[in-house]
Write a protein that binds this DNA or RNA. Sequence first.
DNA 1: GTCATCATGTAAGCCGTTACATGATTGC
DNA 2: GCAATCATGTAACGGCTTACATGATGAC
Lengths: 202, 202
Amino acid sequence: MLELAILGSLKEQPLHGYELKKRVAETIGPNAAMSFGSLYPALRRLERDGAIAVVDAGGTGTPIPATGSLSGDLAAARLRRGGKPGRRARKAYEITPRGDERLRALLLDPDSPDDDRTFAMKLAFCGALDPAARLQLLQRRRANLADDLARARQQRPTPRDRYARSLVEHRTESVERDLEWVDSLIAAEGGDNSENLGAAAS
Amino acid sequence: MLELAILGSLKEQPLHGYELKKRVAETIGPNAAMSFGSLYPALRRLERDGAIAVVDAGGTGTPIPATGSLSGDLAAARLRRGGKPGRRARKAYEITPRGDERLRALLLDPDSPDDDRTFAMKLAFCGALDPAARLQLLQRRRANLADDLARARQQRPTPRDRYARSLVEHRTESVERDLEWVDSLIAAEGGDNSENLGAAAS
DNA sequence: GTCATCATGTAAGCCGTTACATGATTGC
DNA sequence: GCAATCATGTAACGGCTTACATGATGAC
C-alpha cells in the first residue's frame, strides 16, 4: 500500500519525504494519509532494496518540483551557496528501473486485497502502466465488484433492524455505482485516445 | 472495531464464536469479515473484563433462545447423551451490564476513527442506543462528511492525469451520496418533530 | 474411512500508528 | 526571540492476519 503510494508518486517526479506525504494525501485523500513513522522507514527500505535512489536536492539541473513552494527554492539557493546545510538535510528520492518493476508488480499483484482503498490507490497511479496492463487491472476490479453485487443480491436473510437494513441497502447501491464507474473507466480506455494515452506512457 | 462487532452482536442474542463470525460477516459485509485469530482472543479478553459471560449451549442450528429457559433444556439434553460433549465444546457468550456500558461507550467514542467502515459498524449496532445518543452519532457523522466535502471542493489543484482526476471526482460524489444518506437517516429519527431537527443541526 | 463442516484455539509476523526527539527556517 | 512550519528520524506498541494445531460430527 504504502510502497505503492511512494513508488507511484516518485514515478512522476523526485520528491523528498515531507513533500511526498503531502502529495499522497492529496491524491488518495487526507483521511487515508500515511504517517511519518511509516513513511521514512519505508523510504530507507526501498533505498536499501535499490528501488529508489537519493538525488541531491541542492544540486544543479532541474531537481525538485515546481510545487510553488518558495522555501524549497530558497533552500536550494542556500545549498548552492556552499558550506553549511540550508534547511535540515532534505533527501529527495527518485525511482530506479528496479523500482519501476516493483511498481508494476504491485499494481498488478492479484493477491493484493481488493477493497475500495486498494483500488483507489492503484487507479491513482495506474498511469504508469501500459494500456493493456491497465485494462487488466480495471477488468479485474470490475469482475470483483460484479461478484460482490451478485452475492449481495442473492443473499437476502433479513437484516435485523432498520439500521442494519439501511446499511446493506446503501452498501449495495455503492457497489452498483462503483461498478458503473469502473465501466466508464474501461470504456474510456478503449475509445478516446486523443491526448492522454501518449502523454501517460512517457 | 472488533469489540464493537462482538458486543453489538451479543446484544441481540447469545452466540458462540463460530456463529458470531458468520453473523458479523452478514451485517458488515463479507469483505470486512474478521478472522478467528482475532475473534477468539477478543472473546477471552472481553470475558476476563466482565463484559461478556459464558452461557452453556448445546444444540446445533438452534440459536440460543431469547428466553434463556431453553438453554437449560439443551444443556440437559447434551448431558443425557452421556457426559462427554456432543460437538466440541461450544462456548456461547452473552453480554453483561458492563458489556452494555462498553458497547455504548464504543458507539459514542468521539476519538474513534471516522471512516466509512467505522461508521457502518456503528450504524449496524446503534439500535442498542437510546434515540438521543443515536441522533448524536448520526449528526457527528454528518458534520464530518460535510467537512470532507467542503475540503474537497475548496482544494482545486487539479490532479495530474485523468485517472487521479476521475478518482477525486468519484470520491467527491461518494461523499455527497453518503451525506444525503445520513441526512435521510437523521430525518427518519426525528419523525415529525421539526423543532428538534432545526435546533440540533445548528 | 475419509471428507466437508463445525468449532476453538495459539504463534508468528506484518503493517501501520502514536509519541517522542531533533533541528533548521520563516514570519511576526 | 518566539511560534509555526518544514524536515527527518526512532521506539514502543497495537490490532489484525495468516498459518498452524486440534478435534468432533455427519454425510456419502
